[in-house]
Simulated scan of single mutants.
Amino acid sequence: MTEYTSQKDLKEMVNKIMSKSPELESIFFVGCGASFSELYGATYFLKQNAHKLKVQSIQANEFNYARPNLADKTAVVVVASLSGTTKESVNAVSNAKKWGCQTVALTHLADSPLTKDADFTIVHAFFEDYASKAAKQKDALGFAVEILEAVEGFNQYQKMLDGLKVVDSITNFAADNVKESAKDFGEKYKNEKTIFILASGPNFGVGYSTANFIFMEMQWIASPILDSGEYFHGPFELTVKDAPYLLFMSDGKTRHLDARALEFFQKFDAKYTVIDAKDFWLDSKIDSEVVDYFDPLVLTGAMRVYAEELSKARKHPLSKRRYMWKLENY
């Protein structure tokens, strides 16, 4: 049985990183595709809370071909790949190592090529339940929490640890309770050729992942991803009667941005669906000061159910592809 990396393991890992690089100044989150989008929440958390620690999220091949100046001995680089075989991500670990960075592989497979040049490996779940679909995000966030605490201290540290302990049960609860609404969603949107997605704050990564990988990659549905705040600065011109939208609604600080977009959908009779983090009782189990950072994990689990029902309604399996896994060098 695979042993997945625990929060205690992450803390020990960070302690080792700090002992090797007490001058640590920056952290990079690197990946491709869905793995790249799943690092968004950890990046957002650090950008919101760090005073000194510099943080960047960068696509793996951009990292390889356009080395950031901060990628040196004062940096730790976390590279994610579910299978651990994505060549751009494997190369990113090797390059980071060559540039003097400490390297962390974040993967489902402990002995995959991604781990070959990595100083440390985080092994996450994926297939066990709906919460495991967000396990990569959870481990990236847990690692970010430990890095921030170690480098400069964080006054909400215990609240984040408490949230990490309960978020899996909340995510599975959410997935169990959206099955009927997910079926309705599948029927409602099965013939759409385009679905616009809106999200804000830490949930933008979930929106990006849903647009690019669930809708475009897995269902061949065109799907622009819009920031809820930016929606009113151009994109709202396309909101007309029955224009199709999916809105991920925050349970935290940026909820007003999402609510404003929802009001506009209603005003102009758009065809919309809302997946609202507040429906899943996060605020009763996770402190309101940090609940934002757990929204993406719960929404990821819920959205997986929506994706499954959409694929059934369209008679288009989530595994069906035109090009991926079929063409070499792409």
Rank of each mutant, 00 (worst) to 15 (best):
V30M: 09
D117I: 06
D111A: 04
K54C: 06
S181I: 10
T194P: 00
A302R: 10
W220Y: 12
D242P: 03
E263G: 07
D176T: 07
E3P: 05
D279E: 13
L282N: 02
P296T: 04
Q7F: 12
F63L: 14
G186R: 10
F36Y: 13
F265L: 15
M218S: 03
F36N: 12
K278Q: 07
K116F: 12
A75I: 06
D176F: 04
W220I: 03
I197N: 03
Y293C: 03
F280C: 00
N155T: 05
Q56N: 09
S112C: 09
S57C: 01
M160E: 08
D292I: 10
F120S: 01
H124M: 11
A125G: 06
T85S: 13
S37Y: 14
Y40D: 04
D269H: 15
K241H: 05
L39S: 03
K271D: 15
G41E: 05
V76G: 01
S35N: 06
D295G: 02
E149I: 11
K98V: 06
A182I: 08
S169K: 09
P235L: 07
Y189G: 00
L282Y: 06
I27P: 01
M303K: 15
E187I: 13
H316S: 11
K278D: 11
Y157D: 01
S81N: 03
K11E: 14
A105E: 08
G153P: 14
T107N: 06
Y306T: 08
A131I: 07
D129G: 02
R322T: 10
L148V: 14
I170T: 02
F173K: 09
E146D: 08
F196P: 00
A134N: 05
I170G: 00
F154C: 09
D287Y: 12
E230H: 02
S21C: 09
Y306P: 00
L327W: 11
A175R: 09
S19N: 12
V206P: 00
Q266G: 01
V93T: 09
D269S: 07
D129V: 06
P224H: 11
G205P: 00
V78L: 14
S311T: 11
A199F: 04
